[in-house]
Design a protein around this nucleic acid. Structure first.
Lengths: 121, 121
DNA sequence: CTGCATCCTTAATGATACTG
DNA sequence: CAGTATCATTAAGGATGCAG
């Protein structure tokens, strides 16, 4: 069977949507070093609500990325295969953020100028 | 400066949210081979609405991932650095989807059993 | 064809209170 | 502590029509 994320109804797109997600990335990255409790995850991933954390953990558990064993969340073998690609996203985000912020400033001030000129006409 | 996606208000988290996104992934992957027109992107990325495509393209343009040159969207140098990590997500999604679907089936039928037992009590 | 603007619907997220 | 349940808010996504 040929799976293709570009195909509207291909299940692989739902899988992509699940892994291409900031909460998923932070949870998986947090669990790489070893199992953690709910509260530990809640502390490390600043700003995540208990509801969102619960929902995301259930969803990852359903997909077989992690398991819950005596109060701790642990990556499965499948989940560990996500370490590398998701860690790469973290590294990208943290190492390119200054460029991105500069670009945003430039873009926004260019937009401001357009508005300014428009007022002069 | 130390950037950290786990910090609630760190700008790098907004950047992570932008790249850890299925539409971003599909757009960037589509543009790796060369510039494309709006309509070409709209065709390749099945099921994306014009509004979402427009919004996502603007957002990526703002962050400096791509530029619009005479009707074509083209990755910038910064955007091309996303090729590898995002392509990795595509490959993961397409190559592990069968495992994921199996896991979902198992998880859901286990949940059904619990409901069944609950009815017997 | 390439968008932008609008309106509408749904999904994601957040806040709070509550229970085992 | 580890959730669940509920409600409120916000963001994402989609449909349609219009304009350059």
């Amino acid at each position: 069977m040929e799976w293709n994320i570009f195909s509207r109804s291909c299940p692989s797109r739902t899988s992509l949507a699940q892994i291409a997600n900031k909460w998923t990335a932070m949870i998986v990255i947090s669990l790489v070093a070893g199992p953690l409790r709910f509260g530990e995850l809640h502390t490390r991933i600043e700003g995540i609500s208990k509801k969102v954390l619960t929902d995301t953990l259930r969803s990852l558990e359903r997909d077989g990325m992690l398991i819950r064993a005596d109060g701790r969340y642990e990556l499965t073998e499948l989940g560990r295969t996500l370490e590398e690609p998701l860690k790469a996203l973290q590294i990208w985000a943290e190492s390119h953020i200054e460029d991105v912020l500069d670009n945003r400033d430039r873009y926004d001030s260019a937009a401001d100028e357009i508005v300014l000129v428009a007022h002069l006409l």
